[in-house]
Nucleic acid binder design. Structure first.
Lengths: 342, 342
DNA sequence: TGCTCAATTTTACGCGCGTAAAAAAAGAAT
DNA sequence: ATTCTTTTTTTACGCGCGTAAAATTGAGCA
């Protein structure tokens, strides 16, 4: 490899004894050239290391191979895992993913879309902030660029939505909690995205279905510092004596992690064993849920199916395909993960 | 804005009544054109939304404005915070950062460097995996692209290193622990990067300095699943009856989080209060350290100074500057964060 | 051998911009 | 008004590649 540096495709074509347009064709799709030609190019590729100039390529292609990935917060392990998964799938499919994090900010989310326009992506996979999102601007973006939403939906925006089904996952947990002890109350903060709302609705529905009186504890707080909110407000609520049930279902794991810390600090033993006076459950199977004290009972989202589904949908769309009505909203089921906290 | 879409700079130049090369000059540096000209361009910019084509620009510029950021693992909140910080500083300076995560893999780290070559970055900020890194290849990369290392050093590689000083931060913690209770043992896993080694050395040094016998507990495990290793090996060590001290200093917070979980599960109360039989301290001030049970006493790294220093150094380098000998290795001090665990 | 079709080469153009050099214009100083 | 200086325009070229159309080549086959 790399006997000498090659400057451009012209030079490389000469070395391999093939014309430049043929080399260009090869790089766009190796199988589109005759086998003998392919072998000559690949032989040259072994001797010289040449890669087509990314900028020249993208300037001239009708459509780049770029796919943008937008998540609310890469610091959140759920999204960092999703992004990593999706990136892998896209690379395998021959695309160039680039991931951006909104850091929970509405303005930043829009800025990312502006940046994305600059790289002229073939498509975008986006987990929007949700309620905080600038709907109009995102809608405008989706008109220009094929976009698939995941995790959190904005009704009527984007070509499709892939996520998990709160009306399956939450009742699953509620049913378990009711079966194994006191029916849960629901611990939530003001919803930053539609998921949170749906989870509450699903909780209410499930409780009624089981013939129990639902209790929603809504605490204050905004932004994406869920642990902090769960902790601070958890401390306050506990101090004021006031959880309506000794079983608490949190709207997500990060909130639960905060609440666990609050309970610990308040001297409340949390868990399923007899010496415990409180049970706490979460939702999402956050990577740290295994290491909380006690370990957190939760519902795992189907990471793999969601990322696989999102990628398949956007690639189909990019390839000129359309989304069938039945695929406009695809929801996967959650899986109960029983640990020590509930 | 956007009365009509503009296709290229030629067209935009016509609209603003200025020649295309002048517009080009403006976009490279607004202050390089006469004030009256600038105003005409900016007036046009208000009416039409035009942005120079990224690919055409980068193809023709001698040097792009791209700066690569490479971290071992964006899922680790420490690195995701660092990356975010650095990105902000670079954007403010007029550069385009793009962040890549090695995901703890030696091969992936090298692949990232290959990818980086493709975007022809002006410079790179890299937190290498450390011992797992392919030193030769990284060295080769640094020969072609100005590169500054941060967080974890590879001796002799890169133009400079910015990090924190374990020989300040660790003794700070050791001194505190000795002053407030039983002298600590050191809980560590096989070092994935030089930092871990240095922290152990610093521990040994500090203990001797204070006239105590050091005890290093090295547990098994590889990879970057620190919490998992701390948990599993913590369980094992506790079960075998065997921590040499009731105060444990972990080589980082993530390991400590795992150990805390192990202690909890083993029924050991951890903390500084009298009813506790064990103290655990960490290092780094991981964002979750506030929410462990009990909250984790640790040493905070100087995020801001490290990212600011890294950015200043690389930009200086990119601007053709050189690194003075005194700046080849810059270390910042850590700050003791006292919480409930030790 | 001659034919057909697909693969390849040739030729030619364009993408949108940076950049350098020379010419022209504008502004400042005399 | 003249000269000098700075800024802008003009002109011209090149970056490295995609792509389309026409010309050529080669393989497979009768």
């Amino acid at each position: 490899m790399s006997e000498r540096k090659i400057r451009n495709m012209e030079e490389f074509a000469a070395k391999s004894g093939v014309s430049r347009p043929t080399v260009s064709k090869y790089f766009n799709d190796p199988s589109s050239v005759r086998k003998s030609t392919r072998e000559r190019i690949e032989a040259a590729l072994e001797r010289y290391d040449f890669r087509p100039n990314l900028y020249a390529v993208n300037q001239n292609r009708r459509l780049t191979k770029n796919i943008g990935i937008v998540v609310p917060n890469v610091a959140d392990p759920f999204f960092s895992e999703m992004a990593r998964n999706i990136e892998g799938l896209l690379i395998d499919a021959g695309y160039s993913p680039s991931t951006f994090s909104s850091h929970g900010s509405r303005d930043h989310e829009i800025e990312i879309l502006e940046t994305l326009r600059a790289i002229r992506p073939a498509g975008v996979l986006m987990a929007p902030l949700g309620r905080a999102s600038d709907r109009a601007k995102i809608e405008g973006f989706c008109k220009d660029v094929p976009t698939v939403l995941f995790d959190s939906n904005i009704e009527g925006v984007g070509a499709a939505f892939i996520g998990s089904d709160p009306f399956q996952s939450v009742p699953l947990m509620v049913e378990y909690l009711c079966r194994s002890g006191e029916p849960p109350c629901f611990f939530e903060m003001p919803p930053v995205n539609p998921n949170a709302n749906k989870r509450r609705e699903a909780y209410l529905w499930a409780m009624q279905d089981l013939g129990h009186a639902p209790h929603v504890v809504r605490v204050e707080g905004s932004g994406w510092d869920f642990e902090d909110i769960g902790y601070r407000e958890g401390l306050r609520v506990i101090k004021e004596g006031g959880l309506p049930s000794r079983t608490v279902l949190c709207s997500n794991d990060r909130l639960a992690i905060g609440l666990l810390a609050a309970a610990y600090e308040s001297g409340i033993r949390v868990g399923i064993t007899e010496d415990c006076s409180m049970r706490i459950a979460g939702h999402d199977d956050h990577p740290f849920a295994r290491f909380t004290c006690p370990s957190l009972t939760t519902v795992a989202q189907d990471y793999k199916s969601i990322s696989k589904g999102s990628v398949e949908t956007i690639l189909n769309l990019v390839d000129g395909g359309t989304v069938r009505d039945s695929e406009r909203e695809v929801l996967f089921e959650g899986r109960l993960v029983m640990r020590a906290s509930a």
